[in-house]
C-alpha cells in the first residue's frame, strides 16, 4: 500500500530541485567542438576533386569547376558549389573525404526559413558562413 506514497514523496522532493531546462533561444546552446553544423566552404582551397559530391549519400552537393585563369598553372578552380539543405543530412562524410579541408563543418545550425528555395545555398553563402568553424575535421 506504500508504493504510490513513495512516488509522491519522490515528486515532492523534486519540487524544489533546480530545473534542467536549457534557456535556448534566450541563451545560445553550447554544442561540443565536434558538432556537425552547416558547412563552411572556402573556394581558394578547393581543388575540384569532386570527392565530396561523390561520397554524399543524398547527392545534395553539386559543383562545377573551370580551368585556372592563370594559364601557367595546371588544375582547375571551383566555379559553382551548391548544397541543397532540403536533403542534406549533415552526415559529415563530405568533410571527411575532402583532402584540402575546403569544406568543413561549423557550429552554426539555425537553418529555418520561410521558403524552401532559401535552403538551396550557393558558393557565396557557404563561403560567408565562416563563423564557429570546426577545428578538427
Amino acid at each position: 500500500m506504500l508504493g504510490f506514497a513513495k512516488g509522491l514523496g519522490f515528486t515532492l522532493k523534486k519540487l524544489t530541485e533546480k530545473s534542467v531546462t536549457h534557456k535556448y533561444p534566450d541563451v545560445p546552446y553550447p554544442f561540443p567542438p565536434r558538432f556537425r553544423g552547416i558547412q563552411h566552404f572556402s573556394p581558394e582551397k578547393c581543388i575540384v576533386c569532386n570527392q565530396c559530391a561523390r561520397i554524399c549519400p543524398t547527392e545534395c552537393i553539386q559543383l562545377t569547376g573551370k580551368s585556372h585563369p592563370d594559364p601557367e598553372k595546371k588544375g582547375k578552380i571551383i566555379d559553382t558549389y551548391d548544397i541543397n539543405f532540403e536533403i542534406c543530412i549533415l552526415c559529415d562524410l563530405c568533410t571527411e573525404v575532402c583532402p584540402t579541408e575546403a569544406i568543413v563543418m561549423t557550429n552554426n545550425f539555425e537553418l529555418s526559413t520561410y521558403s524552401r528555395d532559401e535552403l538551396f545555398k550557393n558558393l557565396k553563402w557557404l563561403d560567408d558562413n565562416n563563423t564557429n568553424v570546426r577545428e578538427e575535421n
Binding site: 554544442f31 561540443p32 567542438p33 565536434r34 558538432f35 556537425r36 543530412i89 549533415l90 552526415c91 559529415d92 562524410l93 571527411e96 563543418m105
Partner: peptide, 26 residues
C-alpha cells in the same frame, strides 16, 4: 551529450566506419 561530444551529433551519429570508428574519445 556524451555522444554529441564524441561524434558531433545528438541522434544520427554516423559514428562507426568500416574497420573502426570515426573519432577517438576526446
Amino acid at each position: 551529450e556524451l555522444f554529441a561530444e564524441l561524434s558531433g551529433a545528438r541522434l544520427t551519429y554516423n559514428y562507426m566506419r568500416i574497420g573502426g570508428v570515426k573519432w577517438d574519445a576526446p
